[in-house]
Design a binder for these strands. Sequence first.
DNA 1: GCTTGACCTCAACTTTGGTTTAGGTTGCAT
DNA 2: ATGCAACCTAAACCAAAGTTGAGGTCAAGC
Lengths: 155, 155
Amino acid sequence: MPDRDPAPKLLTVGEVARRSGVAVSAVHFYERKGLIGGWRSSGNQRRYGRGTLRRIAIVKVAQQLGISLAEIGRRLASLPDDRTPAKADWARLAEAWRGDLDRRIVQLTRLRDNLDGCIGCGCLSMETCPLRNPDDALAARGPGPHYLDASKPLD
Amino acid sequence: MPDRDPAPKLLTVGEVARRSGVAVSAVHFYERKGLIGGWRSSGNQRRYGRGTLRRIAIVKVAQQLGISLAEIGRRLASLPDDRTPAKADWARLAEAWRGDLDRRIVQLTRLRDNLDGCIGCGCLSMETCPLRNPDDALAARGPGPHYLDASKPLD
DNA sequence: GCTTGACCTCAACTTTGGTTTAGGTTGCAT
DNA sequence: ATGCAACCTAAACCAAAGTTGAGGTCAAGC
């Protein structure tokens, strides 16, 4: 496999912004957060490799899954910074996030089903409605903040 | 229908907090935001009716749907503040939010399916990967910020 | 009648994910 | 060699959804 890339063209911050669909200020921000990395020109201007576009694409996909930038950064740290992420790298990320996504979908679906039930029931009977707190049911779960969590049935 | 409620017991802020599962500071906050309303004792302490527990339950359900407090407040404003929300009131809210929820589920499911495809494809071919920006596809969508939006196919 | 826990207000602080502004520098085209 | 767009940094600002702290008041049991 010969080296087919004698002078890989580096991208300016503006090019990265345009092509990845984020604002220049966001590219700066991602760099500060360590989500992406690049080089500097002799005049101190940012220069990015093409892998950066891919990394930003991954960031934006992950954000749609509801994953925080901090967590995304942690996962991305496992990708090599200096080379284009390979198939195996991406597959590892995708599978990890796939699990998160599944859980969110299950949770929302359960919530929706409860909601459907409650449209019918009118949600005024405290004993039977799965969406409503039966007043003290949450308090009975012990101290600390409680959340109506569709992943756990209310008793 | 006789009045069966000669002296409806009012709840203190602490009782509301305990029974609804939120912090006292959050109850204050919700009141400031107009999500709930109550009365004051002669000594200026908050007193809430039991409908408040129900309203807070609705707030927390809606938050799980990813609805902002501002939007929740807008919807809740359609509920009568001075009486317990009735079946029809709740049904109206639930149906409105049901639509939102459906859309989110569809979006996440589509994202998951794309993710699955990409685990297989390795996501390195710019032309075929539906999750990845085909570099300039987003830029071609006009000015302004762009998001990888799973609800719209990339071309 | 006094102590103690719950309550009050107001203001400041927190985190996340950025954007905006100010003041100054680079780099490319003409 | 000059002009203009694009770039640089640092700091301030924004919104959401609250929490925390300071300083002071209320209510209830003994």
